[in-house]
Simulated scan of single mutants.
Amino acid sequence: MQFSQKLCPFCKKDNQCDVKNAKSCWCMHIKVPEELKLLVPKENKMKTCICKNCILEYKDNADKFKEKYIKDNQ
């Protein structure tokens, strides 16, 4: 499977991560739930960041998020 470090593993949109510039990246100022990290597809783990919108969507309603993005409803 092809992946891009700039695409969110769930919505496939630009994750807008700038982790190379850690002080200014939004990802350094938001808590990513551990359960959400576990849902990242194996082929993308530690290779791409989850976008802020998906993190917030998951925090708002984890079950709805899983229905939308997780195949076979793990």
Score class of each variant (00 low, 15 high):
Gln2Ala: 11
Gln2Cys: 07
Phe3Met: 10
Ser4Gln: 15
Ser4Thr: 13
Ser4Leu: 15
Gln5Met: 09
Gln5Glu: 10
Leu7Gly: 05
Cys8Ile: 01
Pro9Asp: 00
Pro9Trp: 00
Phe10Glu: 06
Phe10Gln: 02
Lys12Arg: 07
Lys12Trp: 02
Lys12Asn: 14
Lys12Cys: 03
Asn15Val: 01
Asn15Gln: 03
Asn15Tyr: 01
Asn15Gly: 01
Gln16Asn: 14
Gln16Ile: 08
Gln16Val: 09
Val19Arg: 14
Lys20Tyr: 04
Lys20Trp: 07
Lys23Asp: 12
Lys23Gln: 12
Ser24Gly: 10
Ser24Gln: 14
Cys25Gln: 09
Trp26Tyr: 03
Cys27Thr: 10
Met28Thr: 15
Met28Glu: 15
Ile30Tyr: 01
Lys31Leu: 11
Val32Trp: 01
Val32Glu: 03
Val32Tyr: 02
Val32Phe: 03
Pro33Gly: 07
Glu34Val: 09
Glu35Cys: 08
Lys37His: 10
Lys37Phe: 02
Lys37Ala: 12
Lys37Gln: 15
Leu39Ser: 08
Leu39Cys: 09
Pro41Ser: 08
Lys42Gly: 06
Glu43Asp: 13
Glu43Pro: 05
Asn44Glu: 14
Lys45Glu: 07
Lys45Gly: 05
Met46Trp: 07
Met46Gln: 12
Lys47Asn: 08
Thr48Phe: 06
Thr48Ser: 14
Cys51Phe: 06
Cys51Ala: 12
Lys52Ser: 09
Lys52Thr: 05
Cys54Tyr: 00
Ile55Gln: 01
Ile55Trp: 01
Leu56Thr: 09
Leu56Asp: 13
Leu56Lys: 13
Leu56Ser: 11
Glu57Leu: 03
Glu57Cys: 03
Tyr58Gln: 07
Lys59Gln: 06
Asp60Ala: 12
Asp60Gly: 07
Asp60Tyr: 10
Asn61Val: 00
Asp63Gly: 05
Lys64Phe: 02
Lys64Trp: 02
Phe65Arg: 00
Lys66Trp: 01
Glu67Asp: 15
Lys68His: 09
Tyr69Cys: 10
Ile70Glu: 10
Asp72Ser: 13
Asp72Lys: 13
Gln74Ala: 15
